[in-house]
Simulated scan of single mutants.
Amino acid sequence: MTAKSLPVIAALAVTALAGCAGGQSSSDPGGTRFVAGDGKVQVFSAAERHQAPAIEGATIDGTTEKLATGKVYVLNFWASWCAPCRAEAPVLKDIAAKTKAAGVQFVGINFKDLQASAQAYDRRVQPGYPSIFDKTGKVLLSFQGTVPPAAIPSTLIIDSQGRIAGRALGAVKYNELLSAITKVSDE
């Protein structure tokens, strides 16, 4: 190892510690780099909510998942290679189980991943809810304007009328997410 390689190694270490997130730059107008988030849940007032796009796709286990109106959904965009996604998995699993009786349905959106890696991760974590396999990012891109196209992990709350009621960019925090979901499902 040379003295010149130390700054490069240090820069790579900082990048790795940042997880899936990094800033966008003016040389990246398409938003293909990852976007950092603080995990704070922003709940939109009813007047500010926009209709969510229609979501349907093959899950990582080969079934089909389709969102319908009349139910509150929590969508979580994740990848098996994303450290913050792995860190928030126990939070999502617990809240999904806790809110299921209230009719809240969690759906994962596995983004730009290998199907075998996503399946292995799902078997290990056992989240208790399905994940759509979105290798190309089509589902995530359908939320452009609400979720930056490279912001993972990201979580959306869809109200029973099919509108985007809440958003968190970055790994979610337990109490904040549970509170936001409860607020939307109690409407």
Rank of each mutant, 00 (worst) to 15 (best):
V41A: 06
V139Q: 07
V184L: 00
A36N: 10
Y129T: 05
R124M: 12
D28A: 09
V147T: 08
V14S: 08
G39N: 09
Y129C: 04
G37V: 05
L75Q: 02
A120E: 10
K98Q: 15
C85F: 09
L178V: 00
A97D: 11
A101Q: 13
K173A: 12
A36H: 10
S142A: 14
V104A: 03
A18H: 07
V172R: 03
A36I: 13
L177K: 00
K173T: 14
W81C: 03
G57R: 06
A3L: 15
K98V: 06
L141F: 11
N76M: 02
A52D: 02
A116F: 04
L114D: 14
S185N: 15
K183V: 00
G22V: 05
I157C: 03
W78P: 00
T182I: 03
N110R: 08
I152G: 02
V72P: 01
K98F: 05
G31T: 08
V72C: 01
V8Q: 12
K71Q: 15
G128Q: 11
R49W: 09
T2P: 06
I95P: 00
A150V: 06
G170E: 03
P148V: 05
G62M: 04
T32I: 15
E176S: 14
L12C: 13
S80A: 15
G103E: 03
G70R: 06
L169R: 02
I152F: 09
R123T: 12
A101H: 09
D94R: 14
T182E: 14
R124L: 14
W78Y: 05
K4D: 13
L75V: 01
L141C: 07
S5K: 08
P149K: 07
P84V: 09
E187M: 09
F77D: 00
K71E: 14
S142E: 05
T69Y: 04
A46S: 14
T146W: 13
Q51T: 14
A16Q: 13
I132Q: 05
T136M: 08
P148K: 06
P153Q: 13
R124Y: 08
G166T: 00
T15E: 10
T64A: 08
C82V: 07
I164C: 01
E65A: 11
L75Y: 02
F106W: 05
A118K: 02
N76F: 02
A13V: 15
V43G: 02
D159K: 01
G62I: 03
A116Q: 13
A18F: 09
F34S: 14
S45L: 07
A36Q: 13
L169H: 03
G137A: 06
Q105P: 01
R86Q: 13
A180I: 00
F133D: 07
V74F: 01
Y73L: 00
V107A: 07
V35R: 11
A10R: 12
I181F: 00
A68P: 01
D186K: 15
S160G: 11
A54V: 10
P148T: 05
F133V: 07
I164M: 02
A168P: 01
G22M: 12
L156E: 01
